[in-house]
Simulated assay, not measured.
Amino acid sequence: MAFRADEEIKEGREHAEQYLLSRLTDLSPDEFEKSKSALSDLMDQLGPVIYTYPTWHPLVSDKRKDYDCIFPNKDCGYQGLDHTIAFAHGFITCPYDDGQKVIDSVNALTNNPAAEITAERLDVKLYSSQATPVVVRCRWTRPLASDRSIPLSIAIPLLLENELPMWQTAEVAETWESMRSNFLGKPHGKRSSLFVNQETGQGIKKIWESLINTGMYGSIKIYQ
């Protein structure tokens, strides 16, 4: 099936609204409208809703115990997350406490030269009137592309930082087809996703194929 970014963006936005607003039945009409308006503004700022991040994305690449950590959780440095909706440039999480664990864990993340990761409590209710919504933002230190996608100049150094050390332990080289979800994030197409456009995705593919063709990771594993 062809990758239809516009449809994915629309469906993701509808999902976020349903997930984060539908349970707020005990709010007054004014309070609900304030939450709805704040969420709309946040979605405009944070980009499209996503299912998983690329492995090289700053939001999942720090303090990682598991290479395949592709969604914010304790294995990539976060504490206290609950009821989380992820976006291309940040996420909203709604724990049933004051959110301080989330904020403290974000403040403890290692500095990344490509982005500053920040966290702050929101002054509206999301998910539940008993929860404390916290927004975690990925503030890129270099300009994004005109379509707000991540350009090759940012994606490649982050990818290489993650992938080059693997030559020491790898037994086989994985092809683009088997690594595509890791490098593009989900949802994605053959060479693009809600993180990177077609040009950047093609550039990532070329770099990866050049790396595995050196033999540095071992023989190339072909899936039948």
Rank of each mutant, 00 (worst) to 15 (best):
A2D: 09
A5M: 01
A5W: 05
D6R: 14
R13E: 15
R23S: 09
L24A: 03
T25R: 09
S28I: 01
E33K: 14
K34M: 08
A38P: 00
L39H: 02
D41Q: 10
G47N: 01
I50M: 07
T52G: 03
T52H: 12
W56P: 14
W56A: 10
S61F: 08
K63H: 12
P72Y: 04
L81S: 04
A86R: 11
F87M: 15
F87K: 06
A88L: 03
H89P: 00
I92L: 15
T93I: 03
C94T: 13
C94R: 05
N107S: 13
A108V: 00
L109R: 13
N111W: 03
N112Y: 01
A115S: 10
I117A: 08
A119L: 05
R121Y: 04
L122C: 05
K125Y: 12
L126A: 05
A131D: 08
T132Y: 03
P133L: 08
V136E: 11
C138H: 04
R148Q: 15
E163I: 08
E163V: 14
W176G: 06
S181P: 06
F183T: 03
K186C: 05
H188W: 01
L194F: 03
Q198S: 14
E199S: 13
T200P: 00
G203D: 05
I204E: 01
K205A: 14
N213P: 00
Q224A: 14
Q224T: 09
